[in-house]
Amino acid sequence: NQESVVAAVLIPINTALTVGMMTTRVVSPTGIPAEDIPRLISMQVNQVVPMGTTLMPDMVKGYAP
C-alpha cells in the first residue's frame, strides 16, 4: 500500500508547505504520494487543510501529478 501525504497540523489557506506540516499515512482514497514531499515544500495550499486531512493534488497550487 502506498503512503499518501497527510496534514500533520492545521494548514491555513495560502500557506507555503514545510516538512513539519506534512506526515504520511496509508489512506483511502490515496492522495499525493509520500515521495512527492520534496516537491511540495514551498508550494501553497489553496484551501484550509485540517489536521489529518489527506492532501489531494487539487489542494496544492501548481502541483501536477
Rank of each mutant, 00 (worst) to 15 (best):
V49T: 04
I37V: 10
V60M: 05
G20K: 11
Q47S: 13
P65W: 02
T23C: 04
V6D: 00
L17F: 02
P65H: 11
L17Q: 01
V19L: 12
P29V: 09
M43I: 03
M59A: 06
Q44G: 05
V49F: 01
T30F: 08
S28A: 07
S28P: 02
P50I: 06
A7T: 07
T53G: 05
I41H: 04
D36T: 08
M56A: 05
R25H: 12
N14G: 09
M59D: 03
V48D: 04
M43E: 05
M43P: 00
N14F: 07
K61T: 08
A34I: 05
S42N: 12
P50C: 07
T30G: 10
V27D: 14
E35H: 06
D36M: 15
G20I: 09
P50H: 09
V5T: 06
P33N: 15
V5R: 00
S4V: 02
T23I: 08
V26W: 07
I32R: 00
V27A: 15
G62F: 06
Y63T: 03
T24F: 11
N1C: 07
P50Q: 13
G52A: 04
E3L: 08
V19E: 15
T30Q: 13
V9Y: 10
P33S: 08
A8W: 07
L40V: 07
Q2G: 15
R25G: 15
P33T: 06
M51R: 15
V60W: 01
T23N: 14
V5K: 01
L17R: 00
S4Y: 07
D36V: 08
A64C: 12
T54H: 02
S28K: 03
S28I: 07
A16N: 09
R25P: 01
P29T: 06
I41W: 10
P29G: 04
T23S: 15
P12H: 08
Q2S: 14
R25S: 05
G20V: 08
G62N: 14
Y63F: 12
L10K: 08
T54R: 04
G31P: 00
L17G: 00
L40R: 00
E3K: 04
P12N: 12
V48H: 08
G62R: 05
L10H: 09
A8M: 08
Q44V: 09
A64S: 13
T24S: 11
T18Y: 05
S28F: 15
K61V: 09
V9G: 06
Q2F: 07
I13C: 05
K61A: 11
Q44D: 04
A34Y: 05
G52S: 13
M43H: 09
T23H: 14
M21F: 06
T15P: 00
P33M: 10
T23W: 11
N14A: 11
N46R: 15
S28H: 09
Y63M: 10
P33Y: 14
A16V: 09
S42T: 12
M22N: 01
T24P: 04
Q44W: 10
M51L: 04
M21A: 05
L10S: 13
Q2N: 14
V26P: 07
L10E: 13
M21L: 07
P29I: 06
M43C: 04
T30K: 06
I11S: 00
I32M: 03
V60I: 10
Q2P: 15
M22L: 10
M51C: 05
V60S: 01
L55P: 00
G31T: 02
I11L: 08
T30M: 14
Q47G: 06
I37H: 03
